[in-house]
Design a protein around this nucleic acid. Structure first.
Lengths: 100, 100
DNA sequence: AAAACATATCTAATTTTCTAGATATGTAAA
DNA sequence: TTTACATATCTAGAAAATTAGATATGTTTT
């Protein structure tokens, strides 16, 4: 868990928005087809539609967020679902509060 | 107070270090000449020596941190002292905890 | 008034980030 | 077993960040 690495992720409006949206998937995204719950998060397509950026850009963002361990991907058939990694997010907040 | 703007500042190792150093000036810097306390913070030259980067780079960093209201400058004669803006730092931590 | 000093600003080269189109990969459907 | 679909990766151009040297500004000292 690295403050600078995670701060880089948070230094982009869209990536911050994605993390916020994923706090309440039911409120921010339409229901999924094959799976009627958000236990594993939200598929890339929905996030892309909401963000209004290209597929490759959103995929790149999600990949960088995954590298920083801020989100956890799960594959279900054709789709990849992303959910927040609450442990790392909370650890970051704790670290910031203690060190900053 | 903007999460993305402040996260940008924190996405650089040296800038994070400066904020940390300024928490305990007595421990991290030599005593000042004309002023024997750190009530208004630390002069640019000391921060530059500690960071090991050029004068212009450190001045640029401090200017960006000042724009984000993370630090407060005070001029004393030839020197400019910088101290942490605890209000804004704490507000940022609070906002992150609530929104992220 | 001139010289010295601390800091700020200007300029520019290098590196990194942003972003999307094109293409590849993996999965499901026809 | 093609075809369609969802996502990932590759490539590249544009924009922003990094960084330092040169220069400017403001202050103090001589």
């Amino acid at each position: 868990m690295n403050i600078v690495e995670i701060s880089k992720i948070l230094s982009n409006q869209t990536r911050v928005a994605i993390l916020k949206w994923l706090k309440n998937p039911e409120e921010n995204f339409p229901p999924h087809q094959d799976i009627d719950h958000f236990d594993d998060g939200v598929c890339v397509g929905f996030i892309q539609d909401k963000a209004g950026l290209s597929q490759s850009t959103i995929s790149t963002y999600l990949n960088s967020m995954q590298n920083a361990k801020l989100v956890i991907p799960t594959r279900h058939g054709k789709w990849t679902y992303y959910k927040r990694n609450e442990e790392v997010i909370q650890a970051y907040l704790k670290e910031l509060k203690e060190q900053l």
